[in-house]
Design a protein around this nucleic acid. Structure first.
Lengths: 116, 116
DNA sequence: TTGACATGTAACCATTTAGTTGCATATACT
DNA sequence: AGTATATGCAACTAAATGGTTACATGTCAA
């Protein structure tokens, strides 16, 4: 989980994921193309390694060519196990903040959500 | 957007957000409590500054006390502008990968999604 | 078999990050 | 007024990060 958040923290890596979203099965060389002017092949490799370790991409070898596929599962997991929670209470949180800004209640009292 | 991803990349910061989710309006001191064994107050302050700059939290001053509120809007934005996209094509991507693993098609042909 | 091509590994470097300690300032309480 | 409390700021440090260059390996094709 932490590995996924860390992997997504970098704009270049998010951009790589975008490219693999647009077209699956790209080789390392293919992935490098859009970054030729901005980054070396080795730099891209490092990013791919991080994405792979976070299981955000899957590698399929075919001879000397390494094909990369987006694996949407970890993104789904984050959506499901992390974002959903905040999403669910979105209105709650916003209204609590509103009250605070109005000086009505400095703290949200008696409304602990509990971690179970 | 990048600031939000960067802010969420750190476990301590995600933990702080969790605490603010459970109870809004916590002061700096309150937020420090769970971390008293692991981190100094100044370290927590730095995390809060990063969270604030990413607009993930909102500050409300009351005298000398600084109250913190979760702002779920940026998380919602990420869900909406970033994760949704991958979520939508989840099955597509997975089946493309499956085909690749079976050696059926090395690349996803004629299926570019286009960025518009 | 030889050369070109696709990828890998290693050593190094600059910057950022996450933390520290020490000191300063502002507000509340008695 | 004087003291305790709540927060802020600055300087410093160690480790992680994102990048580089140089060299190595493995596979395809003439």
């Amino acid at each position: 989980m932490d590995a996924v958040f860390k992997a997504l923290a970098d704009e270049s890596r998010r951009s790589i994921l975008d490219h693999l979203y647009n077209q699956g099965g790209l080789t390392l060389g293919d992935i490098c193309e859009p970054f030729v002017e901005s980054m070396s092949r080795q730099a891209v490799m490092k990013h791919l390694k991080i994405l792979e370790e976070a299981q955000l991409i899957t590698i399929v070898w075919s001879g000397r060519e390494k094909h990369h596929y987006l694996n949407p599962v970890p993104i789904h997991a984050i959506q499901d196990r992390w974002i959903r929670k905040f999403e669910k209470q979105r209105m709650d949180a916003l209204s609590a903040l509103k009250h605070a800004l109005e000086g009505t209640t400095p703290k949200t009292k008696g409304k602990k959500h509990g971690s179970s």
